[in-house]
Design a protein around this nucleic acid. Structure first.
Lengths: 260, 260
DNA sequence: CACTATTTGTTCGTATGTATG
DNA sequence: TCATACATACGAACAAATAGT
């Protein structure tokens, strides 16, 4: 659906928008399809950069010499295919690149982002000691009520927030984890220093829902756009759970990729 | 936590309802915890079926003889634990079971549903011949503009819609696919009859977005709740793409499970 | 289309009980 | 004993979403 990750180089554009569109009326191809096609090639060709605003409906109406409904039908098509994003009261925008999050036994946030030539960053929001509720207890294979440390972490790419993750650890197994995470926001490093050099993702459950107000603020995202939620467990070499996490991704900026 | 002396309690007599709630005021357990506990056992005990509406906040307020805030605090707790779902303007509902959709190279909708002791069903909504746009062309490794058949299919579980899938096939490779799908809504069967007894899922991209009005109607879902979107390619034994599909799941009724 | 009723969401203000030092 | 902070509980008003007329 969405054209992925690699930034389209600002290639020498075909031509400025000046060229008269010249729609073919009554030739068997609906006007809105022609308009959608024209805009699509302008986006694909790079003359419209991701994130930039498209002309208003009124301007497109004038440019193509059609009714506003016709322009809107074309925009609907483009939006449904993920090429543009239409926001009531603001305008239409060329969809930004969506980052891939490849889901595998050993995928790590930072590595996967760097592989896409982007700059990953992590920031710990909160570290707290509580007790395991039923969900966390089940994931970590602890008894409910056992002490756990939960660390909430914001993941950013090129300075833009893309994910809020809550990570749970057993206090009995990792008494010092809170301090280590407070120093460096990397879960991988902290576990490595605690004698778990390698861990792997066991199972991941993926759902989607609307963000809470806090999530929307943290992710710098409109409250009307959903978050992708993953719930997963990481286990050590012996298969014992070391970390449970629930991550919430800004759905418009990240897509999960599963290779089989 | 004793009753405030200024206000005479609204009800002298405790229980008009079947089971007397009898909250213990001032016994060291917060009222909202007692209310949450009562509702939890009614849900767990099965006297409140999944999907049914809970009493309104006003009714619970009357039943337990507390302030609306106190009831709301209890509901927050239950919602955060996933036992109920609260919808502004509509009410609160006992959370339905969420179906798992295990994502693997060979997962098939019907099989996976039946394994959870549910009754899968498929209904073809539309079969149409068009040409491949850039997305589909890339997935099926065709040239853009090549003829393709797209079949839109509604997947139901126990009579409730859970997924709308669009499936694309190359017309050149499978000239008869439209007719076969029209007879039986199963993609697996149709491909089998066309000489592809086995196929496997290569890669799946997962995102989330708000549903279009049509999707909301088809999925019998509020327009304010998101859909999970998967985009995937199935290949035959030789690794050649045979089908591209984009599926939209009702996020509240289905979760994707990835095992590593 | 506008209007109304119902229901949940949010934000004020007030008061009391409990734990801590 | 006092001061402070926090959790609990109640009251009122308005905002926002939904559903029906």
């Amino acid at each position: 659906m969405t054209k992925p990750s690699t930034k389209p180089g600002p290639q020498a554009g075909p031509g400025p928008l000046a060229s008269p569109p010249a729609l073919a009326r009554g030739q068997g191809v609906a006007l809105w399809r022609q308009i959608a096609g024209t805009l699509e090639s302008e986006i694909a060709g790079g003359s419209l950069e991701p994130g930039t605003r498209l002309p208003t409906e009124a301007e497109l109406t004038a440019r193509f010499g059609v009714n506003r409904h016709t322009v809107r039908r074309a925009m609907e098509e483009l939006e449904s295919r993920g090429l543009v994003r239409v926001e009531q009261g603001r305008g239409s925008f060329v969809a930004e690149d969506v980052l891939d999050y490849p889901l595998g036994p050993r995928t790590r946030f930072s590595e996967t982002i760097r592989r896409q030539n982007r700059e990953p960053q992590g920031r710990i929001l909160r570290i707290e000691e509580t007790v395991a509720d039923s969900t966390i207890a089940e994931l970590l294979k602890l008894r409910r009520g056992k002490p756990v440390v939960v660390a909430e972490r914001l993941g950013l790419v090129d300075g833009r927030p893309v994910v809020v993750g809550a990570h749970w650890f057993s206090v009995e197994r990792f008494p010092r984890i809170a301090a280590l995470l407070a120093e460096d926001a990397s879960v991988t490093k902290a576990l490595s220093q605690l004698g778990v050099p390698e861990y792997r993702r066991l199972v991941t459950r993926i759902t989607a829902r609307m963000p809470t107000p806090e999530e929307a603020v943290l992710l710098e995202q409109a409250r009307s756009r959903p978050v992708l939620v993953t719930e997963s467990v990481n286990v050590d070499g012996a298969g014992a759970p070391v970390e449970a996490s629930i991550a919430r991704y800004a759905a418009g900026r990240m897509q999960i990729v599963v290779e089989s």
